[in-house]
Design a protein around this nucleic acid. Structure first.
Length: 155
DNA sequence: GCCAACGTTGGC
DNA sequence: GCCAACGTTGGC
């Protein structure tokens, strides 16, 4: 059982999009970075939990919790020439890019903002907060996970 | 294998 | 829109 943080731009695919999908489930396609790909392909397991993080927006932060409901499998959007994430080097017989399926578990009533995460000394070493970090999929330690859950004011 | 140029990410 | 940080590309 592992914990993760998955970034997404709300203008592109945000919490509201996931919420409106059948079974509140959608595949997480379009990742075109090898480090993030390795997490998707090799490390993420069915049943793992992840924070759903909004980036590149007015108030970046964690807005929900998702569960990995299908482990890594080839990202077919890489094979579609008309897809914006098309990669001619990838093919069904030799896939390069992978995705998982995520299901929305819980929507936070009050998002946990990036500013709030930065203000928590217990999260000083969190990967998300390290300078220059750009990975769209990041591992979260159990300790960090619990610390962040305690910051949730939904109760 | 080196490294400059370029593109992307993402907070501000 | 700016800019720092980082990944990728391609010439050599």
């Amino acid at each position: 059982m592992n914990y993760w943080l998955m970034k997404t731009e709300p203008d592109c695919f945000g919490l509201d999009h996931l919420k409106s999908r059948p079974k509140r489930t959608e595949h997480w396609d379009g990742v075109r970075n090898y480090q993030a790909r390795n997490f998707l392909r090799d490390s993420m397991q069915k049943g793992d939990l992840a924070f759903f993080y909004h980036s590149s927006c007015a108030e970046p932060g964690i807005v929900g919790v998702v569960k990995i409901v299908r482990a890594g499998y080839p990202d077919h959007t890489a094979w579609a020439p008309d897809n914006e994430h098309f990669d001619p080097k990838s093919s069904p017989s030799k896939p390069i890019w992978y995705m998982v399926d995520v299901k929305l578990e819980r929507e936070l009533k009050h998002s946990i903002t990036l500013a709030a995460l930065k203000n928590n000394p217990a999260l000083k070493h969190m990967q998300l907060l390290q300078r220059g970090n750009r990975l769209s999929i990041l591992p979260v330690t159990a300790k960090e996970w619990n610390t962040i859950l305690k910051m949730d004011k939904s109760d």
